[in-house]
Computed example of a mutant assay.
Amino acid sequence: MSDTSDTVSFGYEDVRAEEKEERVGAVFSAVARKYDIMNDAMSAGMHRVWKDKFVRRVKPRSHEQILDMAGGTGDIAFRMEEAGARITVSDINQDMLDVGIERAMERGIDTLVWSRQNAEELSFEDRSFDAYTIAFGIRNVTHIDRALAEAHRVLNYGGRFFCLEFSTTEWPGFKEVYDAYSHKLVPKIGQMIAGDAESYRYLIESIRRFPPMPEFEGMIRKAGFRHTKVEPIMGGLVAIHSGWKV
């Protein structure tokens, strides 16, 4: 996609690129205050296990610089901060960042840097970070290829890229059950807990429109990363993607 007049997906709709950014922003502003409660409700708490595993794969180390993109409410940053890493939490949505800042204050964490950023146009200098993480955020980016290129640009040589994202489970039988649950029940849960069915309908639809694991790995390689790897979880319902800048 070469310009902002291109058509991109917003759930099952195809919209203009500039319209997607506005509509995604509205979705996350609407759900920010209930985002973590809804994650628990929708995944039966499993998102916590997935995030713990993700951070173990990242292996944050003391004093290294890490950019946590789409870090919003701080879930990944709080886990990595325990290792002593110097973390910049970035998100395009200020409402999500505000929730994360409040949560950090409640935990007595004052070592994080909070920065509003567009993943496609980061303001950071080349080779600023040792690791780049993004969890459940890249599917909401308007131009994924641009975000991956920016991730590659801001990483040091030897830096690592890690992405946790929903995908398509390949477990026979489970896929059908999950499809029925996500399309029929998740919007109802969103209505009951957050008073917002439509935002959660979009979030489910955005998962369905996200590239399959092999295709997304190919996009990571095309952005310049090497030694790429995909680690499916629950048959591919969720996957950890990784790569290195060499």
Rank of each mutant, 00 (worst) to 15 (best):
N118D: 15
N118M: 10
N118H: 13
N118T: 10
A119Y: 04
A119N: 02
E120L: 11
E120G: 09
L122T: 03
L122E: 08
S123V: 12
F124Y: 13
F124R: 10
E125L: 07
D126Y: 08
R127Q: 12
S128L: 12
F129H: 11
D130Y: 05
D130H: 13
A131K: 15
A131I: 05
Y132L: 03
T133R: 12
T133K: 06
I134C: 14
A135D: 02
A135I: 04
F136V: 09
F136N: 15
G137V: 00
G137S: 01
I138M: 13
R139W: 04
N140T: 09
N140K: 11
N140Y: 12
T142K: 13
T142V: 05
T142S: 11
H143S: 12
I144N: 03
I144F: 01
D145M: 07
D145E: 15
A147F: 11
A147R: 15
L148P: 03
L148Y: 11
A149E: 13
E150S: 12
A151Q: 10
A151E: 11
A151D: 10
A151M: 07
R153N: 09
R153L: 08
R153T: 02
V154D: 08
V154L: 06
L155D: 02
L155T: 00
L155I: 00
L155P: 00
N156C: 09
Y157A: 13
G158M: 07
G159D: 03
R160N: 03
R160C: 00
F161L: 06
F161V: 01
F161H: 02
F162W: 11
C163D: 07
L164Y: 13
L164H: 15
E165L: 00
E165W: 04
E165K: 04
F166S: 07
S167D: 08
S167G: 05
T168N: 06
T168D: 08
T169A: 05
E170W: 05
W171V: 06
P172N: 11
P172I: 01
P172V: 01
P172W: 10
G173W: 04
G173S: 02
F174S: 04
F174I: 07
F174A: 10
E176T: 05
V177F: 11
V177A: 12
D179L: 04
A180E: 12
S182T: 05
S182V: 01
S182A: 11
H183S: 08
K184Y: 13
K184L: 09
L185G: 07
L185K: 13
L185Y: 11
L185T: 13
V186H: 14
P187E: 06
K188F: 05
I189F: 05
I189K: 09
I189D: 07
M192R: 15
I193R: 14
A194G: 13
A194S: 14
A194M: 07
G195N: 01
G195W: 01
D196G: 03
D196H: 06
A197Q: 04
A197V: 00
A197L: 00
E198L: 01
S199N: 12
S199W: 07
Y200W: 04
Y200E: 05
Y200L: 00
